[in-house]
Structure formats: structure tokens, C-alpha cells
């Protein structure tokens, strides 16, 4: 869904005259929405701009992605950046998720990196889902009734 949303926004920004480049790890969705320019990163979802704590990988992917602005001359082109995750088991159950961080942590313990339920997607809660409880407290402190926020925009009525 993310890739579809981004593709639609890319088309709208481009129509306003600003050239866009969409990174993508979901080729078929991007091809279907058809944004003006795209760069394919063949990693499990959640790593569209590189592997965690790997500066060289992140720099290469984003630098090569940006170079597509100068290389793509035909609307709707998807360039493969040649990213290689290494171990390819994530392809078997791509919605299960994959995490370098968890794999590294599991290497030092007897517990598996993740219970294998085939799908890492969570429930679609209708209230804000904070990463940390302190984030909720900070947001509530800043968003009292008379404190309008210019950075959190576009809520449903």
C-alpha cells in the first residue's frame, strides 16, 4: 500500500513541475501505479534506502538512486540498483518481515529472531501508535487544546 501511495504522490508532484524519483522494493506495485522515475532496491520491505548501520550501503543506494534523475529519459522507467541482501530466505514469506538487527541479537542467544507466523503485519488501530510511551507524553504536552501544531497536519474531522 505504501508503494501505491508513494506512486500516486510522485505523479502529482511531477505534474506540478518538480522531477521525482521513487525508491521501490515492490516492483509490481510501482509498475502498476507507474510513477515517472523509480529505482529498485531488492531488499525485504522496510529497507528501501539501505541496511541498518551500514553507511556504505545507504550512501550507495541513495546516491545511485539520485543519479537516476540524470539517467532516466523515458517516463515510467524503473532502474534496478543491483542491491543484494545476501541470504535470500526472506523471499519465501515476504510479509513475515526481515531484520538485520534481530538476527544479530538472536546470534547471541538461544531464542529465534522471530516467531514464524508468516505475517508481521499488525492490527490497524485507530488511535496514534507511539514507538515509546515517552513519545505519547511529549506529544500530549505539546498538543493541548490551545497549542496549535504546524507540524502535524491533515487530521480527519
Amino acid at each position: 500500500m505504501c508503494h501505491q501511495s508513494v506512486g500516486l504522490i510522485a505523479r502529482a508532484v511531477e505534474a506540478a513541475g518538480i522531477p521525482t524519483l521513487s525508491m521501490t522494493s515492490a516492483w509490481s506495485i510501482t509498475a502498476s501505479v507507474n510513477p515517472p522515475r523509480a529505482a529498485f532496491v531488492d531488499y525485504p520491505l522496510g529497507h528501501t534506502t539501505g541496511q541498518p548501520h551500514d553507511r556504505a550501503d545507504q550512501l550507495r543506494i541513495v546516491r545511485d538512486g539520485l543519479r537516476c534523475f540524470e539517467q532516466i529519459g523515458e517516463p515510467g522507467t524503473i532502474v534496478d540498483l543491483g542491491a543484494d541482501w545476501g541470504e535470500q530466505g526472506w523471499r519465501e514469506q515476504p510479509l513475515r518481515g526481515a531484520s538485520r538487527t534481530a538476527t544479530a541479537a538472536a546470534a547471541g542467544s538461544d531464542r529465534p529472531a522471530k516467531a514464524d507466523d508468516g505475517d508481521s503485519r499488525g492490527a490497524r488501530h485507530a488511535t496514534p501508535q507511539y514507538q515509546l510511551d515517552e513519545d505519547r507524553l511529549a506529544a500530549e504536552a505539546r498538543h493541548g487544546a490551545d497549542k496549535a501544531c504546524v507540524a502535524c497536519v491533515g487530521f480527519d474531522d
Binding site: 529497507h47 539501505g50 548501520h53 513475515r96
Partner: peptide, 18 residues
Amino acid sequence: HFAYDLRDARADINVVFP
């Protein structure tokens, strides 16, 4: 987010927000 594995993004946000 509800639809992707957040562990690496929470360890290094640059994987989804460079």
C-alpha cells in the same frame, strides 16, 4: 506502521528515512 517489520527502522531510521 502496521505493515512492515519495524525493527531495523527503529534501530537506524535511515533504512526508511535517509
